[in-house]
Amino acid sequence: MTFKAIINGKTLKGETTTEAVDAATAEKVFKQYFNDNGLDGEWTYDDATKTFTVTE
């Protein structure tokens, strides 16, 4: 399945996608990506659209 992340950061904005077997796996991938890029913020997840949003 394809999962999307919308990034609303102070220094980084945009979208990225990942292929994962479930939402928990996708969340781990996205959180690692955000940690690697120095992002920290509020997380939400919309199961209907398979979209994570992080707002810094």
Rank of each mutant, 00 (worst) to 15 (best):
M1A: 08
M1H: 12
M1T: 13
T2K: 12
F3P: 01
F3K: 02
K4M: 07
K4C: 11
K4H: 11
I6P: 01
I6H: 04
I6M: 06
I7V: 09
I7C: 12
I7E: 02
I7Y: 15
N8M: 13
G9Y: 13
G9W: 13
K10D: 06
T11Q: 10
T11P: 06
T11A: 08
T11H: 12
T11S: 11
L12W: 15
L12N: 08
G14C: 15
E15G: 05
T16G: 04
T17E: 07
T17V: 09
T18S: 04
T18M: 10
E19N: 12
E19H: 13
E19I: 15
E19F: 15
V21S: 11
D22N: 07
A23C: 11
A24C: 12
A24V: 10
T25F: 05
A26H: 01
E27R: 09
K28V: 07
K28Q: 11
K28S: 09
V29G: 02
V29E: 05
K31L: 07
K31D: 00
K31E: 04
Y33N: 04
Y33F: 12
Y33R: 06
Y33P: 01
F34Y: 08
F34I: 11
F34H: 01
F34K: 01
D36E: 12
N37C: 15
N37S: 11
N37M: 15
G38A: 07
L39A: 05
L39G: 05
D40A: 12
D40M: 13
G41N: 06
E42L: 12
E42C: 11
W43Y: 05
W43Q: 01
W43A: 02
T44R: 07
Y45P: 01
D46Y: 03
D46E: 06
D46C: 08
D46K: 02
D47Y: 06
D47V: 08
D47Q: 08
A48E: 11
A48K: 09
T49A: 06
K50N: 07
T51V: 05
T51F: 01
F52S: 00
F52G: 00
F52T: 01
T53A: 04
T53D: 02
T53K: 04
V54P: 01
V54D: 00
V54N: 01
T55Y: 12
T55P: 03
T55W: 11
E56D: 07
E56P: 13
